[in-house]
Design a protein around this nucleic acid. Structure first.
Lengths: 177, 177
DNA sequence: AAAGATTGACTGTTCAATCTTC
DNA sequence: GAAGATTGAACAGTCAATCTTT
């Protein structure tokens, strides 16, 4: 009698989980190493810059940026400190709330992002999007949303990418089985 | 004109990628923290022990174990060193090849795995499997396999969890678009 | 006292260099 | 010289503790 990784799962479940686990294990590494080579940027740093570039005034509060990037505040704070030293972003005090910090994308940061974007988009396209049919893309979208509903039930971090409300009720509508 | 994270993707692609990226970002953290709390084990350590427990003699070569866990050799080597200090595994010289190392799961390691397994299985079930219908599980399996075909085209690391060959040709059969 | 954020210490990963055996 | 593996330094992430403003 062996208690193995795949015990407690029936055959199909085990195979599916093993594959998803492999994707989750390998994808970040590939994304990171390509971006580091081509733009000296972590994938997380790239996403951070990208979120700032979309914001009004290229500026966001730390907590808003953390939510947009699915990160904890301590993690983001460290990353912002490093990027600030490199001149890619800049911290500024929030005028309306003395406790809060704003982060602004600098011109250098914007340039760096613009340089990195085409290669990164191509990578994502090549690794994920082009591998799937249109139908599979739709399936994946629904599936990923369902998993996010479990991993982050309150939408604390994933508000930005979760499925919009389908009918009637306001934000935070009923979810899940 | 803004070059953003979601530029270069059309609407559906962007939403799908954002969600998949969020899953990939958040899932490992949740898995890790639950396992650490309940069994003082990393998710990667758990998988390592689990793979050893399934092997004959509970023993595997470093390179085989690296392939089974989707890890690089340096990473695995560090992890094995730590677990060896804790008495969960043991290194032994490979009799047939002087360059190779074997790793064996100790009785203590087996016990630890048996203690950890039910909780971990429940976590995976709760976060992923139970969130999806039978049909979605099948879809996810196919989708994850397709992505692995791009992320690790040679199957260097994912031989264990890739879809078995469907027809005729030997291992390394045609794959891709 | 709670919200917003930062810091420091610790753990874990990565990368290049190294060592040994084939 | 290539395969198998290990090592050490640099880097990124996590957690608990802290500080300030509300």
């Amino acid at each position: 009698v062996v208690v193995v990784s795949t015990s407690g799962f029936d055959g199909d479940e085990a195979a599916t989980w093993l594959r998803l686990a492999a994707v989750v294990e390998l994808l970040p590494g590939v994304l990171d190493s390509r971006l580091r080579r081509e733009a000296d940027l972590t994938h997380f740093e790239y996403v951070t810059l990208a979120m700032l570039s979309e914001a009004p005034e290229r500026t966001l509060r730390m907590s808003a940026l953390a939510a947009a990037t699915n990160a904890t505040l301590p993690r983001l704070s460290h990353v912002v400190s490093r990027m600030e030293k490199r001149g890619l972003v800049q911290r500024t005090a929030c005028p309306s709330d003395g406790r809060a910090s704003n982060v602004r994308l600098t011109d250098d940061g914007q340039e760096r992002l613009i340089d990195a974007a085409p290669g990164h988009v191509a990578t994502v396209r090549h690794l994920v999007l082009d591998a799937l049919s249109r139908e599979q893309l739709a399936q994946l979208s629904t599936i990923a949303d369902a998993i996010l509903g479990r991993v982050d039930p309150d939408g604390a971090m994933t508000a930005f990418c979760r499925r919009p409300v389908e009918a009637g009720t306001a934000a935070g509508s009923a979810r899940g089985r």
